[in-house]
Design a protein around this nucleic acid. Structure first.
Lengths: 243, 243
DNA sequence: TAGTGGTCTAGACCACTTG
DNA sequence: AAGTGGTCTAGACCACTAC
């Protein structure tokens, strides 16, 4: 196997194995080569192969049986997300079988509400960047994403901000910040008048509300988000390995 | 450090570190000892310490900074679950600040519906074990859990089944089966008449519906569950490390 | 019994942050 | 420059499963 040194060895092994599974070279339900065979074939240590296989197992892609072997999970076609990619709405829409697109609705600065100031650890009256975006599945609006970022973190004029980027990239490009961890509250809710209108729902329909906080590695809150998710159209479907 | 050989070394290290964090010996936000210090102190290899720290990091308990150190995450008090324990409803209720208890409502065998037969890969007309349980937070009913298991899997008389056990233990004790992975669909829903009555909700209130399938390591469906979750009382709050 | 995955070790080197 | 976490290796031994 040829390894190009730009990525880590483990990442390259992961990509290779994901590719072989995706393309059916390792067929659903079948047994994969053993750890030793893989490490021999790729010229890497068994430990490296094992870290990759462990990651794939957590994501539900493979099933490992001690004393037997490693099997490709045949159920993965049913699933739209694992916890590694829940916040990639475009990916979510795509794996539900639609073509994703993003429409920025509002990009403005304004004064933080009391609740926002509290959650973001801001002084009362401080300003923040408000981003409202609409995600489409094909031509149908399915997710309304409202995010706020303390304006003090933003280091470019707001006119330069590309509202179609992933929150991760917005923080990277415009704030020079990396996300360390995320806290998500999942609620059921009734579509308010404005949300209902935007998502083409009846004002009394139920939707999923995903309240998210992104934090940096010093536990500073970076972003506060309210995401309204039309779960009548889009399935939020998670896999997890059972320890 | 004394290691008792009944558990794996890694598990013991994990328990020790979780304890020190829980009891504030490693204070929230503070820097923990380095990997080398820990491996010296406990007499285990650095690799073993690292696998434990990696697990704690994924669960959001600690934050790791290359070139700097490992820090205790101060935000963990706000969170009720990580993906390792979402299906431990008792734990969920407890970490929301309530005393959990379980009330078995129905334990019976019946013919599978068409939808159930499909999901569980059963022949039409096959029987299954139906378990309905009610979880209380203090004295308030908060989760209605309806689970069905193919009767062919159950190897004890249904009178012997203890309806207060975790699904994991029910499968282990009465079916000799282990759960390999789980697929969960999260929906918002309106409380139907029966669910509303059981959970003391108005018939039009919104609730969370968690549709769950548990699978064995050969991808056989073991359990199908519909869990109605009163998210007005109980917060479903997840942490996740950001890759 | 042979082969699989699970656990653990000891040590090397690298990338990064802080003082 | 010193110390931290990140990556990787080579090899040992164990627990388990299938044949």
């Amino acid at each position: 196997m040829r390894l190009i040194q730009s990525k880590s060895i483990a990442d390259q092994v992961e990509e290779l194995l994901r590719g072989r599974i995706r393309e059916g070279l390792y067929a659903p339900g079948s047994r994969m080569p053993s750890e030793s065979e893989l490490s021999d074939e790729m010229g890497v240590s068994r430990a490296t192969v094992r870290t990759v296989l462990a990651k794939l197992a957590v994501n539900g892609l493979i099933l490992r049986k001690q004393g037997d072997g490693t099997y490709v999970n045949a159920m993965m076609q049913k699933v739209s997300a694992n916890l590694g990619n829940v916040w990639d709405f475009s990916y979510l829409i795509e794996s539900n079988g639609f073509a994703p697109s993003i429409q920025p609705v509002v990009t403005e600065s304004r004064i933080a509400t009391e609740k926002e100031a509290l959650a973001l650890a801001l002084e009362p009256g401080e300003k923040l960047l408000s981003l409202i975006r609409l995600f489409y599945a094909d031509t149908r609006p399915v997710i309304l994403a409202r995010n706020v970022i303390p304006l003090s973190l933003v280091c470019v004029p707001i006119e330069q901000i590309d509202g179609r980027l992933h929150i991760r990239d917005i923080l990277q490009n415009y704030c020079k910040k990396e996300i360390a961890f995320v806290i998500t509250d999942i609620h059921s809710a009734r579509a308010g008048a404005d949300v209902a209108a935007t998502l083409s729902k009846q004002p009394n329909d139920t939707i999923l509300e995903l309240e998210v906080s992104f934090f940096s590695d010093d536990s500073t809150p970076l972003v506060l988000g309210s995401n309204y998710f039309d779960d009548a159209v889009l399935r939020l479907s998670l896999v997890q390995a059972w320890t």
